[in-house]
């Protein structure tokens, strides 16, 4: 564990807490893409299949439970909770995510470390996580006024993976033989997808104006 990875995990956790805070307190998910939330739940389920048979540390175990629990409860809130579901804009959240899921699955079958079910699922979860934000970014472009919590949520989500990139650089130089091409490339693609959001987010923060993404 290094400071970049811990900061990354804490940033990731806080992004989820910001979203849960928004949904639970103001009972609204306006501007949030249910498609992206469902993709994240799938990412965690396929990533943590080994939660019970490969024990790394208490920290690892607890964080996996938190990520699984929070992502599933967010999907539940947006689908089942009357008030929250009413605030969900399904006419705008129209990204057909089969165009994301299937290619990631095929790619995971072709490019992986080992052709076993768990390893392919783990690789699939990496590819899926890299592009899972797309429905949310598309929805942000369609959402006229993006509220602060939604902007903070997406920003923290992008920042966590950027911190993981620093973690991989650190581990590459401190741990001989630490090479994770699949993880690195997926993580780089994921972070690059946030590039223009970061640009407009920081601009809106600097000029103290409402965040707006050009359509």
């Amino acid at each position: 564990m290094n400071v970049f990875r811990l900061a990354g995990d804490m940033t990731h956790l806080s992004s989820i807490l910001v979203l849960l805070l928004k949904i639970h307190t103001i009972k609204s998910c306006a501007g949030i893409s249910l498609k992206t939330q469902e993709l994240y739940a799938l990412v965690f389920i396929t990533r943590y299949l080994d939660i019970f048979d490969r024990f790394t540390s208490i920290y690892n175990f607890l964080m996996k439970l938190i990520f699984l629990g929070s992502s599933l409860s967010i999907v539940w809130y947006m689908r089942r909770h009357k008030a929250v579901h009413r605030s969900y804009d399904k006419d705008q959240d129209t990204f057909r995510y089969q165009f994301i899921v299937l290619p990631c699955l095929l790619l995971a079958l072709v490019i992986n470390h080992k052709l076993t079910f768990k390893e392919v699922m783990w690789t699939f979860s990496l590819y899926l996580e890299a592009v899972a934000i797309l429905p949310q970014l598309v929805l942000l472009q369609r959402t006229r006024n993006i509220d602060n919590l939604t902007g903070q949520y997406v920003f923290l989500l992008g920042a966590y993976r950027a911190l993981y990139l620093l973690n991989w650089v650190y581990r590459y130089f401190t741990e001989p033989g630490f090479v994770r091409w699949i993880t690195w490339i997926a993580g780089l693609v994921q972070t690059l997808l946030y590039a223009d959001f970061f640009y407009y987010y920081i601009l809106s923060w600097k000029n103290n104006v409402k965040l707006e993404l050009p359509a």
């Binding site: 990875r5 995990d9 990731h12 990533r47 080994d50 490969r54 790394t56 690892n60 964080m63 996996k64 990520f67 470390h113 080992k114 390893e119 783990w122 993981y164 973690n167 994770r180 993880t183």
Partner: peptide, 10 residues
């Protein structure tokens, strides 16, 4: 093939 990867990261 590469050695068994320990998925030690989240």
């Amino acid at each position: 093939s590469t050695k068994e990867h320990s998925h030690d990261e989240l």
